[in-house]
Computed example of a mutant assay.
Amino acid sequence: MSFSRKALTATLSVALLTTAACSLPRSGPKKDEILSASALAESKAFVVPMSDSVVAATSVASQTGFSAAFRNAGLMGSDTISPGDTLNLAIWENVDDGLLAQQGLGSTQLAGLQVDGTGQIFVPYAGRIQAAGNSPDELRRIITEKLATQTPDPQVSVTRVAGDGATVSIMGAIGGQGVYPLERPTRTLATMLAKAGGVSAKPEVTKITVKRGKNTGSIWLRDLYANPQLDIALRPGDVILIEEDRRAFISLGALGQQARVPFQVPEMSALDAVASVGGLQSGLADPTGIFVFRDESAPVAGQILGRADLVGDQRMIYVLDLTAPEGIFLAREFDIRDGDTVYVTEAPYVQWHKTLSALTGSVSTANSLGSIVN
């Protein structure tokens, strides 16, 4: 009976040890598994150690900014008349019985004249007059010349009220979305944003896009404040969109957080990405096994791999070693892109620790079962 108990204990111990060794929990593949898998002939991924040349090849120029057409556009005259504007006219005639004034009245008020789609207005006895593109003073002179041939020494006053034509549309993360007239205080991008209540998103990750006809330009809000040249002059019909950065990367493995992580700055490095999720897990992470998984364009992948036969996006795995002398610098200079996956492997001793823990627990379990049999 004693022999049977020993035999049972030994059998249970072997079974539990075998099971524990084969099913240890972990957050993902080990470093050597990734490296060995990529070396297989059927592998469709390329593993590339990080270097200065890789950093240079993968760096992408900023896609934000305004073209010369936006930057070189001068300030629009604050009183320039546009189609859709509303005008108020007052006409004085130097006679008792004038063309427009009623008997005994010295002036005639023509209020609420709408500038039509062709930019014209109609004034009695003066006919259709081109108003768009002129200032109120220029339009006053034109109307005066037209009426002077029919009534002696007419005096004309023109007042512009910003209407549907001289406006811009603002939408997105702004204090007050809507349609705003272009007036003297709001002729530039920054002043118009202030007029609309200011940006309501996080300033450090807010992008501003201006659409003007077929042209579109985008900048970061922080750059608008830092560079006065980006405070472009607005034009009637401009559409301004304010939105928070939607880019994100995935963090996995022995990091402080495993999640989809939004970008916290316009340009995020690998070091920024690691820091943004709480850094490497102390006691778990392998600082030589930091991987960045990415679908890289064929031209960039070809430049890195020295190949000209690649077609389509390539699966690239970039390896960072923070223990190398230049590792921190490379991590600080390597740009993370939207959709990247940052994965940190566990240190080799962690698996040993888990194995020993599993073995100790397995033997204890076997002993307990043996005691039950006893």
Rank of each mutant, 00 (worst) to 15 (best):
S4N: 04
K6N: 04
A7W: 05
T9N: 01
A10P: 00
A10C: 08
A10M: 09
A15V: 13
A20W: 03
C22A: 14
C22N: 13
L24M: 14
G28H: 00
K31C: 02
E33F: 04
A37H: 05
S38F: 05
A41S: 14
E42A: 12
K44S: 08
V47G: 12
V48Q: 13
P49E: 04
M50K: 01
D52L: 10
A56V: 08
S59D: 09
A61W: 05
A68I: 04
A73H: 12
M76G: 12
T80N: 06
S82V: 03
D85Q: 05
N88S: 15
W92E: 07
E93Q: 09
V95F: 09
V95Q: 15
D96V: 10
D97L: 11
G98T: 06
L99H: 12
Q102N: 12
L105C: 00
S107K: 14
T108M: 11
T108Q: 06
L110D: 02
L110Y: 01
V115S: 11
D116M: 07
D116W: 07
D116Y: 09
G117E: 13
G119F: 02
Q130V: 04
A131T: 00
A132T: 03
G133K: 03
S135L: 07
L139T: 03
R141F: 06
E145Q: 15
E145A: 13
L147K: 07
Q150M: 09
Q155H: 10
V156L: 04
T159C: 02
R160M: 13
V161S: 10
D164Y: 07
D164N: 11
T167I: 08
V168I: 13
S169P: 01
G175V: 00
G176W: 05
G176E: 15
Y180I: 02
P181T: 03
R184M: 07
A190F: 01
M192S: 09
S200Y: 00
A201N: 11
K202H: 01
K202R: 15
K207H: 07
K207C: 02
K211C: 01
G213C: 02
W220F: 13
R222E: 13
D223P: 09
D223V: 05
D223A: 14
L230T: 02
L230Q: 14
L234N: 07
P236W: 11
G237Q: 12
I240A: 11
L241S: 14
I242F: 04
R246Y: 04
R247S: 14
R247P: 05
F249P: 05
S251M: 02
S251H: 01
A259P: 00
V261C: 03
P262N: 02
P262W: 08
S269A: 08
A273M: 04
A275N: 14
V277Y: 07
V277E: 10
G283I: 10
P287T: 08
V292L: 15
A301E: 10
I304W: 08
I304E: 08
L305K: 11
L305W: 13
L305C: 10
A308T: 14
L310P: 07
V311G: 01
I317V: 15
Y318A: 03
L320K: 01
T323D: 15
T323I: 06
A324C: 06
P325F: 05
G327S: 07
I328R: 12
F329S: 12
F329K: 13
L330R: 12
A331D: 02
E333L: 09
D335T: 12
Y343L: 11
P348G: 13
Q351D: 14
W352V: 11
K354P: 04
S357T: 15
S362H: 07
S364R: 11
T365K: 07
N367H: 06
I372M: 15
N374W: 10
